[in-house]
């Protein structure tokens, strides 16, 4: 993970806030758990989310949580189905880094505003050493693997809805995740952003799909606004996308939504994805430490509760956003 150097004193401060102070206060019959930014253990930072902000994509979302900044763009293209799964479409995840030190941006902004994008690309690899070369690659693989695992079951995403003509044509959805800034809790942020982006994805409507002498022939609707919203496509009311949740385990206690500093202090963490129906579609342990069986069970239960709550809130917010319709003002990066 990103290089944040903390002294042992700082680490102890963070750990005791979560762990030791709690037991002392419990003794005084005073319930509180403190984290260094004033949150409780199972509390999230506030999030900002915006969907459909990139005109060239079929669906997009930008998520801001703490200092973490994620941009997800979804592209839909035509492809040939896999031979062993002739009536299923394809879904692929790609994760990319554009990590920059805050200092670099400030310097660039002062020089010339127009060059920001250009400069970001140049500085991206050199800014944080941990992301350079293999280290960053590993984490990017990890994130895309976890996403692939989470969306694998039919309960999460029914690939059959992406099929146009069995054996011949299907939709392929490319989910490209761009990490603009890393302020901890990447897995959650990416999970939520991907969910929001998929939720806003519109697939062009196909008016006719026929086989002409063995060759597929596809006709698209002339009206470019004539699209199918991805989730209404699904027969059941249940939403296909889920969301990933990240719990990090410090000392004997566990917390959600860790900041970068808290991630440095932790030895191991559990990433789990929860479906809207309360089932768990993937669990992976990360970090070099091990976990006790009891803690693992407790984390799973807590994860389920928080996951369902967060899922509901997110869906409500997204619904509210769509109610603004096409007149909605897009903020993008001008804020």
């Amino acid at each position: 993970m990103a290089e944040t150097v903390l002294s042992s004193g700082e680490k102890i401060f963070i750990l005791h806030g979560i762990d030791a102070i709690l037991s002392f206060l419990q003794f005084c019959n005073y319930k509180a758990d403190f984290r260094n930014d004033g949150r409780r253990r199972c509390e999230y930072r506030s999030m900002e989310i915006e969907t459909k902000l990139m005109p060239q994509t079929h669906g997009s979302a930008r998520l801001h949580i703490g200092n973490t900044d994620i941009l997800v763009g979804i592209k839909v293209e035509l492809d040939i189905p896999h031979a062993d799964k002739p009536n299923e479409g394809k879904l692929e995840f790609f994760v990319d880094w554009y990590v920059i030190l805050l200092m670099v941006i400030i310097v660039v902004i002062e020089c010339l505003v127009f060059f920001i994008n250009f400069q970001i690309i140049i500085f991206s690899a050199t800014a944080t050493p941990a992301f350079e070369g293999k280290g960053g690659d590993d984490l990017a693989t990890e994130i895309s693997n976890v996403l692939t695992a989470a969306y694998q079951t039919r309960n999460a995403f029914d690939l059959k809805t992406l099929c146009i003509l069995p054996h011949k044509k299907c939709w392929k959805i490319y989910v490209d995740v761009l990490i603009l800034q890393c302020g901890g809790n990447l897995f959650d942020a990416v999970g939520i952003a991907v969910k929001a982006a998929l939720n806003s994805t519109e697939i062009p409507k196909i008016t006719a799909a026929t086989l002409d002498g063995g060759e597929p022939d596809i006709e698209l609707s002339d009206d470019s606004y004539d699209c199918i919203q991805l989730d209404t496509n699904i027969s059941k009311e249940r939403n296909f996308v889920l969301y990933l949740k990240y719990e990090i385990y410090i000392g004997d206690n566990y917390i959600v939504d860790p900041t970068l500093e808290e991630e440095v202090c932790s030895t191991s963490s559990i990433v789990m994805s929860i479906l809207p129906n309360g089932k768990i579609s993937s669990v992976v342990k990360l970090g070099y430490g091990s976990i006790q069986f009891n803690t693992f069970t407790k984390m799973l239960q807590m994860g389920e509760i928080i996951g369902l709550k967060l899922n509901k809130t997110l869906m409500d917010v997204l619904k509210e956003e769509t109610q603004f319709g096409r007149q909605r003002r897009i903020f993008g990066f001008l804020k």
């Binding site: 039919r154 999460a156 669990v283």
Partner: peptide, 16 residues
């Protein structure tokens, strides 16, 4: 020997 879990990898759709 230590009663610890060192890695979990779950894939599918399963309740808690």
């Amino acid at each position: 020997q230590h009663n610890q879990i060192s890695e979990v990898f779950l894939i599918g759709s399963i309740d808690t």
